[in-house]
């Protein structure tokens, strides 16, 4: 995983490669690629309503988890656990949201979001501690904690938090006051989108220009140099980036609950936290780039069901296309690097 500072050209090349491979695969599968892509694009972008209520709504969790992954990777923390942190955030958000009726209206939404942020950070704190105190690699621990979080959510909606009639495996809806306001009236696009875009901008500015962002980049690029030449507290920087990454992923869960589903149920996330890795890598781990790639993946996922309806291509193909994106990014990154090395040798 070395998608550092992938320039725009490489990102576009990766995209072109993905499209070519996907078209070839569709053709092999017996589906006319043009028709399938056309249906996908119409479904995702065909009308203002589709763009706003389908694609951008789908973009929000990808954007937040994508930022979470990008930040962690920039700090040299391989957080594969955005999915679990998202679920932790969703659980906390629902729990607070269910009890938020008693809160004054202006406090309910912040309370729900704060709960999700805190829970996401707490879920990330476990692997962070294991990494820093015991030297346990975070790739394994964050990945495994995903399954714990997913199963925890499943157990909650079958047990303690199940809606009172006990029919559906989901919670009751959260209090009206705890729901995110809509960004555009008569659409499904909620304020979480604005929050996510602002966070991307803030993160980009911090990483590029601030002292703390500089520390994160230095620690991610070379811990020995950060420690020795930069006199930076490497462990604290790693811990901080890890927790903030978890908090962002937790917020994705909170925003989904407070803005889209209003309840917790099984399979709340169709793997946003994993897709986020592709989102972040394709963006070259740059927060502003993540906005672009998150929208791109929002288009893919938003158009998937339309593609299934009108072109008869199963929506699962979109998962395959997303996987192709990761592979293309890695291949293009390597090739670009090789070209660079061949052009400019060192003296």
């Amino acid at each position: 995983m070395s998608g550092r500072a992938l320039p725009l050209v490489s990102a576009l090349a990766a995209l072109a490669l993905t499209l070519a491979l996907a078209a070839a695969a569709l053709a092999l599968g017996g589906y006319p690629p043009g028709e399938a892509f056309g249906a996908l694009l119409r479904g995702a972008l065909g009308s203002p309503q589709a763009v706003v209520s389908i694609t951008l709504v789908r973009t929000v969790p990808l954007l937040l988890t994508g930022l979470a992954v990008a930040l962690a990777f920039r700090a040299g923390v391989w957080n594969i656990g955005a999915e679990g942190q998202l679920y932790a955030g969703a659980v906390a958000a629902v729990w607070v949201g269910l009890h938020a009726g008693a809160l004054p209206g202006w406090l309910a939404v912040p309370a729900v979001l704060t709960a999700s942020v805190t829970a996401g950070a707490a879920w990330a704190a476990v692997p962070a501690l294991m990494k820093l105190r015991l030297g346990v690699g975070e790739v394994i621990t964050t990945l495994l904690l995903n399954f714990v979080a997913i199963d925890l959510a499943a157990w909650l909606v079958h047990g303690p938090l199940q809606e009172p009639r006990g029919v559906f495996p989901q919670t009751e809806s959260i209090a009206e006051a705890a729901r995110l306001p809509l960004l555009i009236p008569d659409s499904r696009l909620h304020a979480g989108f604005a929050v996510a875009v602002v966070l991307a901008a803030v993160l980009a500015l911090l990483l590029r220009y601030s002292r703390v962002g500089f520390s994160v980049r230095a620690v991610g690029a070379s811990p020995p140099a950060a420690r020795s030449a930069g006199r930076m507290p490497v462990g604290r920087v790693v811990a901080g980036a890890f927790l903030v990454s978890g908090a962002l992923a937790g917020l994705a869960g909170g925003v989904e609950v407070a803005g889209v589903t209003y309840a917790l149920y099984e399979n709340l996330s169709p793997g946003h936290g994993y897709t986020a890795i592709a989102v972040a890598l394709l963006a070259g781990l740059h927060p502003v780039g993540v906005v672009g790639t998150a929208v791109l993946f929002g288009v893919l996922e938003g158009g998937a069901s339309a593609m299934q309806r009108s072109a008869g291509v199963p929506a699962a193909w979109v998962d395959g296309i997303q996987a192709l994106v990761i592979l293309s990014v890695l291949v293009v990154d390597r090739v670009a690097r090789r070209i660079l090395v061949a052009r400019g040798g060192r003296g």
Binding site: A221, P224, A225, A226
Partner: peptide, 18 residues
């Protein structure tokens, strides 16, 4: 230990000034 090779000269100097 002395440098971050992926950083610019400015950023490497900033390691000692931040």
């Amino acid at each position: 230990e002395g440098l971050v090779e992926g950083f610019s000269l400015t950023e490497n100097l900033a390691l000692g000034l931040h």
